Amino acid sequence: MAIVYARSERRTRCAKQGMFEMQTIVCMKWGTRYPAEYTNRLWSMIKRNTTRPTRLVCFTDDGNGISEDVIVQPLPSINLPERVMWLPWRKLSMWQAPLADLSGDVLYLDLDVVITGSLDPFFDYKPGSFCVAENWTQPGSGIGNTSIYRWHVGQHTNIFEQFNADPETVLRNYRIEQQYISALVDEMQFWPSEWCVSFKHTLMPKWPMNFFKSVPLPEGTKVVAFTGKPDPDEAEIGKWPVSSPWKRLYKHVKPTPWITEHWR
């Protein structure tokens, strides 16, 4: 059952009455990797980096500990095989319609991003289009990275419908969900490259300089995505968890002060 808190409900009702144009940002939280604090920090960063009325809707299987100013909704239903039940394939459920009370252009943010600049331009850029970060490991390949994207609710519902009807065929043909989405969207627009960067693939100094130089934050950056490891809380203190000792020879990050400044 959805949990919708009073203050957020009043804000949404005012927007529907035309008192102002509400910007909607959504995130998803499932499983145990990211605690409620990640959602709360995301909301805090959103508030500091928007000048217009903005709400955050969190789709989750556990709303405990999430700020009362965040609108909490249950995870949308989707036909997921057990082996991918808690993987990013679950994000495909965002493409169904109707979806809660969402309408128009909606911005999606992963929980493990750090917001370092204004989010308002993400709502002004090519309105009505599907906009996404170009995947940093596949430049020029027409693949979006769904750490941060904006879609128009009710468009491209075939992304959800095809997967929901036959997930096994999709899983055989595509390695990850963002490749599948990129293949089905005819007109995909990439954000300006300086807006959205990858901590690991864009900013990290190349080996061996990552042992000597801290990760910089270029001017103009608005969102930093933390794909894989390290997570923001780990990179902040200079920790990069590794699964085997030999990876310590090249997987290293120095403490990153700008994360402390922005990720709060």
Rank of each mutant, 00 (worst) to 15 (best):
P81F: 04
N158L: 03
S129R: 15
M22T: 11
M28P: 15
S214G: 12
N64T: 13
I259M: 06
W136F: 06
K239P: 02
E187F: 00
S67A: 14
K126Q: 12
P74T: 13
L109Y: 03
A97Q: 09
T227C: 12
W263L: 03
Q73G: 08
V170Y: 06
N64H: 07
H156K: 07
F160S: 10
W246S: 15
I159S: 08
P230W: 00
S147I: 02
D61Q: 15
W151R: 15
F226P: 14
P192D: 05
L75T: 15
G104D: 11
A36Y: 01
M209A: 10
S243P: 10
I181M: 04
A6G: 05
I148V: 15
D166Q: 14
E161C: 04
D105F: 02
L109R: 10
H262Q: 06
S103M: 05
W95A: 08
I115M: 09
Q155P: 04
G18R: 05
A6F: 02
G228I: 08
T50S: 05
V132N: 12
E219H: 08
L80Q: 14
M85F: 08
V223Y: 05
I176P: 01
H152Q: 12
Q23M: 04
L87I: 09
K16F: 00
Q23Y: 01
K200D: 01
T51Y: 03
F212T: 13
E9K: 13
I25H: 08
R11E: 11
S8Q: 10
E261L: 02
F160R: 09
M19N: 10
S198E: 01
I259W: 04
R41M: 00
K213I: 00
D105R: 09
D61L: 10
D231G: 08
L217Q: 09
W191L: 06
M204Q: 10
T12V: 12
T54P: 13
S214E: 08
R7P: 00
E168I: 12
R175M: 00
V197P: 04
A165D: 13
K254S: 02
P241I: 07
E21Q: 07
Y34K: 12
E177A: 03
Q17V: 02
V242K: 15
R33M: 04
V114Q: 11
I46M: 10
G65F: 01
N135F: 01
Y34C: 11
K91D: 02
I66E: 11
H152Y: 03
F130N: 14
W151G: 11
P218S: 07
I46P: 13
K254C: 02
E219A: 11
Q138T: 15
V132L: 06
F20Y: 13
K213H: 00
F212Y: 08
G144T: 03
T12N: 14
N135E: 11
V106P: 15
E168T: 14
K254T: 02
T260M: 01
G128R: 10
L56N: 11
A133G: 14
P88D: 09
P53G: 09
I25Q: 12
L111Q: 13
L249N: 14
I181L: 02
T221G: 12
E236W: 03
T12Q: 13
D69I: 05
D110Q: 12
S214V: 04
Q23W: 01
K251V: 06
S44Y: 01
T51V: 11
S129G: 05
S198H: 02
